[in-house]
Every structure is written in structure tokens, then in C-alpha cells.
Design a protein around this nucleic acid. Structure first.
Length: 509
DNA sequence: AAAAAAC
């Protein structure tokens, strides 16, 4: 419970924020009769997925939630000029009013208590204000929602699931599919905290070593939990062995939806789960959330989601977080990279918060871990080849603050929410593996880049990112990333002074 | 290559 202060902070903040939003919170003169436009608070754009301990982020750096309208049907919904950057929101012909308070949403007393007491929230973040009415207002339409990293997307779908469950029906009614075990567990923790007073039951469907070693499908009883959050393989398996019945499912959520529906992601599994669910629950509402939706996935996604047409998107040029300063560091060779990690990220980074170092392969995670520990540095490393027990332990230690520096593959690139992380290192830049001959230059993986750097700067906090640039291809990849997101990433020389200066600029020292 | 997890 760090509630007292957390509460105050995350939610609270109230704001001194830039006038743009604060004032209008209440003011909104209801224009046309039917739709009154209220403002949402902007200061705390997001109750981070796991919002507990926070101090109020300084308002100055709050990320703007710029939402570009994908499709604006009738009405322009937002007539306040200050909101002009937020277009979006369109429902075929259903008008929605954004929620300026949680009370506007008809949530149960138990859920409200969870929000205020357990989570410490005071009012909806921008993405919550916009999407919650869409999620909770009948007829329940599907939704595709994009919002910045750390802006509170988890709360949107967790509230959606909690609100739509009928407490009297003891069967799965809400399903949430996530790309990794860690994210599923984290989302479950948020759900249990937020839903603490509701009595709603939930179960996590993730791989476990125990389960893997159990040959018989009778190793478990049928799921009676009302909400199930898990990874695609386990969900699929439970469904196929008839332990997870989906005939009562009313709401199906895909977290990190762009990846869940990407061809090189979990498309097959996701579509199968969706199809099998809809077969017996044709009216099931589908929610897709992510911070990234590239053009290709977006086209596909729009075809997949049929019930209604509520969509929210953010232009890629407005997607990187203001509060997270990005840098590049030229390292002539691998040894220099390791030296930078030791002298800058560890030694000089003592004064920083927690740090995550992203590497490309499981093997480099192991190797880097080995080299650093051999040299006496205190660090842990996580990657998918570890057994589940070890993965859980490493995450637990990091979340408890027992470890300060964590090496990770892209298992943690998406969704991982630890507010004390204020520094991210791309030891290897994220690249896509293009099919065909190995000789081609590697293309940047823009989405992964954005997700990785979003591990810092949760909830509008400040952060710093260091990209280690080793060869010509790295340099090319980096410049493409800058171009794509329309950002400039300055160089930091490999000296203590330069790093200190960079950290100061980022507001971390 | 990473991720999930195995019909």
C-alpha cells in the first residue's frame, strides 16, 4: 500500500497543468443538446499499467495524447479548439461523451472503490476518458485504440472486463490475450487490484513448467473463473482440451494487438481464438489496444474488427514520449559497448533509477550477463529460454527494486510497467529480419524501438535512452528510426562528462 | 531473431 501517497499522486494530480486541459474539465459548455463535450484531465495521462507508486509526474513533460482521427463521421465531437489535436473517436452513429470523471461511467461501487482506494486514481487519463464510454455503452461495439506508452491503456480494458462480467454467472465471460507470460501476469495483477472489491474471479492462463510436464489433459479442472488473462498458446490449448469454455464470453481483449495480429507475430493463434470464440459467442465485443499500429497491420485490423467501428489512432510522428530523451553513443567495437555499459550505465548510473538493457538474442543476454557478473557487477538477465520459475523470480526481484539493472531480450519490450525505470539502453538496435539472403542490410523494427523506449517514462515521467551504435548498419538503422518518428537523436560522446550532461538534460540528475 | 507452446 503505498496508497497514501501514491494515491495522491497518480491520480491525483490535479493539476496545475497547462491550462489547456485543466480548466475545461468542468467547463464544457454543452453545445448541441446531445453531446456535451467534457474535457479529460491531461495531467496524468495515464495510470500506468501498474500504477502504484508514483509521484506525480511533472506536468510539464506530460506526453500529449495526440489522436488523429481515423475516420470522423458525423459530428465533430470536439469543438473546443484546444482539443483540435485530438480528433478521432468515431462511432458509426453512436455519439459518445468523453468521461471527465470515473463517476460518469456508471461503474459499480466496488469498481470505483478499487480505482480510488487500491489504484489511487482520481480521474481518467485521456485515453480512458475517450475509450471507456465506447467500451461500456451499449450496443457494445468493437474498438481499436492506439495510445502512447504508459498512458493507461491497461486500465481501459481491465475496467471494460470488470464492468461487463455478470457476477452471477460462474463461467469465463472476459478473455484477454497477451504476447508474453510477463505481461499476462502483470495485467492480472492490475485486474486483481482494481477488482479487489468486486468478488469477480480471474485466472491467469500462462505456460508453467509443471503444466508442460503433464502429459494428461486432465491435469486441470475446467476454468470457472469469470475473467481469463493469458498467452495465446495456453489459451488455445485450454480451449482445445475443453477446459476453457467460451460460450459465455462477452468481451475479448487483445493487448499489444498489433503484434497479436501481425503476420510475423501471433496472427494465426489470435485469429483462431477469436473465431472459435465468436462461433459460440457471436456478439462478443472485441477490443484491440496497442501503442503502435503500423500501416500494414492497421489495414488488416480494420478488416478483422467488424462490430461497429470505433477506432483511435496516433500519428507516428507524435508517438515518441516528450519526457524520454534519446541519445546515440558511437562504439567502434563490441568491447567498447561493454565498457560503456560498465562505466556509464553502472558506475555513473548509480544515481539513476532502475535500468533495462535490451539485447537482440537470448545468447547475447546470457553472454552479457556473464561478462558483467564476472566483473562484479550486480545485474540479472531475462529471456524466454529460462524456465518459468526463474523468469518469475527475476521479474519479482526487479519489481521489488532488489535489482537495479536488468538485461532483457524483447520479451519485455512491450507492456512491462515498472515506474522506477528511467533509463533504457539499446545494446543492440531492434531490427527486422528480412526473409531471403542474409546479406541484406537489416531494417529497423520501428515498433519494437518505440515499445522499448517506452519502458522508461511511464506515466509522463522523465527518462533517458542510450542507443549503442557499432557499425554502418547500426548508423543506417538509427537514422531511419529518426526519420520515421520525426525525431533527432543527438550523439553523446563516450566520456563521463558528456553522459552526465545528457542525463542532466534528460532531467535525471 | 524474439516471443508462445506444441496435434
Amino acid at each position: 500500500m503505498a496508497e497514501t501517497d501514491t494515491a495522491a499522486s497518480t491520480a491525483a494530480t490535479t493539476p496545475p497543468v497547462d491550462t489547456s486541459s485543466a480548466d475545461s474539465v468542468t467547463s464544457a459548455p454543452p453545445p448541441p443538446a446531445k453531446r456535451e463535450i467534457k474535457r479529460w484531465g491531461d495531467e496524468e495521462d495515464d495510470p500506468p499499467e501498474e500504477p502504484e507508486q508514483n509521484e506525480a509526474p511533472s506536468t510539464s513533460e506530460q506526453p500529449e495524447l495526440e489522436v488523429a482521427a481515423l475516420k470522423i463521421t458525423e459530428n465533430k465531437f470536439l469543438d473546443d479548439p484546444e482539443d483540435s489535436n485530438i480528433s478521432a473517436v468515431t462511432a458509426d452513429d453512436t455519439p459518445y461523451t468523453s468521461a471527465s470523471t470515473f463517476e460518469d461511467l456508471n461503474l459499480s461501487e466496488a469498481v470505483l472503490k478499487g480505482l480510488y482506494v487500491e489504484m489511487g486514481f482520481k480521474k481518467p487519463s485521456k485515453i480512458q476518458a475517450i475509450t471507456l464510454p465506447m467500451i461500456l455503452t451499449p450496443p457494445y461495439k468493437d474498438l481499436v485504440a492506439q495510445a502512447h506508452n504508459g498512458s493507461g491503456k491497461t486500465t481501459c480494458f481491465v475496467l471494460g472486463m470488470l464492468s461487463r462480467v455478470d457476477p452471477n454467472v460462474k463461467a469465463p465471460q472476459a478473455l484477454c490475450i497477451c504476447p508474453t507470460r510477463e505481461l499476462a501476469i502483470q495485467n492480472m495483477e492490475v485486474l486483481q487490484k482494481m477488482g479487489k472489491y468486486t468478488g469477480i474471479t480471474a485466472e491467469c492462463a500462462v505456460p508453467s513448467d509443471r503444466e508442460r510436464n503433464t502429459p494428461s489433459p486432465n491435469y486441470r479442472a475446467p476454468v470457472t473463473a469469470q475473467i481469463v488473462i493469458g498467452t495465446p498458446g495456453t489459451i488455445k490449448r485450454w480451449m482445445s482440451i475443453k477446459k476453457l469454455g467460451v460460450s459465455r464470453v462477452k468481451i475479448l481483449v487483445f493487448d499489444e494487438a498489433d503484434h497479436m495480429l501481425a503476420e510475423d507475430g501471433f496472427q494465426d493463434d489470435s485469429l483462431r481464438i477469436k473465431r472459435d470464440t465468436e462461433k459460440v459467442s457471436p456478439n462478443c465485443q472485441v477490443l484491440l489496444f496497442s501503442a503502435t499500429f503500423n500501416e500494414r497491420v492497421t489495414n488488416f485490423v480494420s478488416r478483422v474488427v467488424k462490430r461497429g467501428n470505433n477506432q483511435l489512432f496516433v500519428k507516428k510522428e507524435e508517438l515518441s514520449l516528450e519526457g524520454v530523451k534519446q541519445y546515440k553513443v558511437y562504439c567502434p567495437d563490441e568491447l567498447t559497448k561493454i565498457e560503456v555499459i560498465k562505466t556509464k550505465i553502472f558506475d555513473l548510473g548509480e544515481k539513476l533509477g532502475q535500468r533495462i538493457i535490451f539485447v537482440r538474442t537470448k545468447n547475447s543476454a546470457r553472454m552479457l550477463y556473464q561478462q558483467l557478473s564476472d566483473d562484479g557487477y550486480s545485474v540479472t538477465a531475462i529471456q524466454g529460454a529460462l524456465n518459468t520459475e526463474d523468469r518469475d523470480k527475476i521479474i519479482k526481484e526487479f519489481k521489488e527494486g532488489l535489482t537495479q539493472v536488468l538485461i532483457s531480450t524483447d520479451v519485455l519490450a512491450r507492456g512491462f510497467d515498472q515506474q522506477q525505470v528511467n533509463c533504457v539502453v539499446n545494446y543492440d538496435l531492434p531490427v527486422k529480419y528480412s526473409p531471403g539472403p542474409r546479406s541484406q542490410p537489416l531494417e529497423p523494427d520501428y515498433e519494437v524501438y518505440l515499445h522499448r523506449i517506452g519502458r522508461a517514462g511511464r506515466f509522463g515521467r522523465k527518462g533517458a535512452v542510450f542507443n549503442l551504435i557499432c557499425d554502418d548498419n547500426d548508423e543506417l538503422v538509427m537514422s531511419k528510426i529518426e526519420q520515421y518518428f520525426d525525431i533527432q537523436v543527438p550523439e553523446v560522446k563516450n566520456t563521463d562528462e558528456a553522459f552526465e550532461e545528457a542525463l542532466k538534460t534528460a532531467g535525471l540528475l
